[in-house]
């Protein structure tokens, strides 16, 4: 049997389509964890990245934090938090947020730094307030890069959220962990396929969002 056969029999089994261990339930769980983690990470990293990028200060400190965040192993952090905090969503959220903050932080900072300084100078010269300069001049131009940072973070979260199953939570990781213990490769392949599909759907969503949100003038000149 090869990978395609596993996937075929997994998705062909009607038992996998309903109930608490059905695909819809697991998919919703997975999306919920991922969205929560992404939102948390964005709430932490976006303002910091925007403000440090706007003023052009603290880039080195940011790079240090980002490196440290990347170096912390997600799986290890999950197990450690599980031992310390016990069963629950928090031990899962911590490693996912730690994973997602560095790409958002660094990309947002870089995006703000890469904005051509002369329109910013012109905007100040015209009498725009700092907040206006930030949101009406810099962010629209930096948006494609900022979105790419969020996209990278989202893909990593979706892929890594599978480890939540190791500490007895749900999500698509359930199929992979259970499949591993039960030697049920059908389940593992099915779960992996679903995670990959979810990641691709996320990519498509980000692509659509950037089509909608990024000005034609920015896209054209890129």
């Amino acid at each position: 049997m090869n990978v395609l056969d596993f996937a075929h029999s997994f998705f062909g089994d009607p038992a996998h389509w309903h109930g608490y261990d059905g695909i819809p339930t697991r998919l919703v769980e997975h999306i919920t964890y991922s969205l929560e983690a992404l939102l948390l990470a964005a709430v932490i990293a976006l303002p910091v990245g925007l403000v440090t990028g706007h003023y052009g200060r603290g880039g080195n400190a940011l790079a240090l934090i980002a490196t440290a965040g990347r170096a912390l192993p997600s799986f290890g952090l999950l197990v450690l938090m599980f031992i310390w905090l016990g069963f629950g969503l928090v031990p899962v959220m911590i490693p996912l947020v730690v994973l997602a903050v560095p790409p958002i932080l660094v990309t947002t900072y870089e995006a703000m730094r890469s904005v051509d300084p002369s329109p910013v100078d012109a905007a100040r010269g015209m009498g725009m307030s700092e907040a206006r300069v930030l949101f009406q001049v810099e962010v629209p131009v930096a948006l494609p890069l900022i979105l790419s940072g969020l996209r990278t973070a989202a893909i990593q979260i979706i892929s890594t959220a599978t480890i939540a199953a190791y500490v007895s939570l749900g999500g698509l990781g359930r199929y992979i962990i259970d499949g591993l213990y039960q030697r049920d490769y059908e389940k593992v392949v099915g779960g992996a396929t679903l995670v990959a599909a979810l990641a691709l759907a996320t990519l498509a969503l980000f692509w659509a969002a950037s089509r909608l949100a990024v000005s034609r003038g920015v896209r054209g000149s890129a």
Binding site: D116, S118, P119, V120, A122, A123, G125, M126, G127, G217
Partner: peptide
């Protein structure tokens, strides 16, 4: 900012807002 709005400001390479149309660039102030 009100001082700056009472003075036009033109710089090298124009410093236009690339995400706005020509008309909206001019309409900024």
């Amino acid at each position: 900012n009100s001082l700056r709005r009472s003075m036009g400001y033109v710089i090298q390479n124009a410093g236009l807002f690339q995400h706005r149309t020509i008309l909206d660039n001019i309409a900024t102030v």
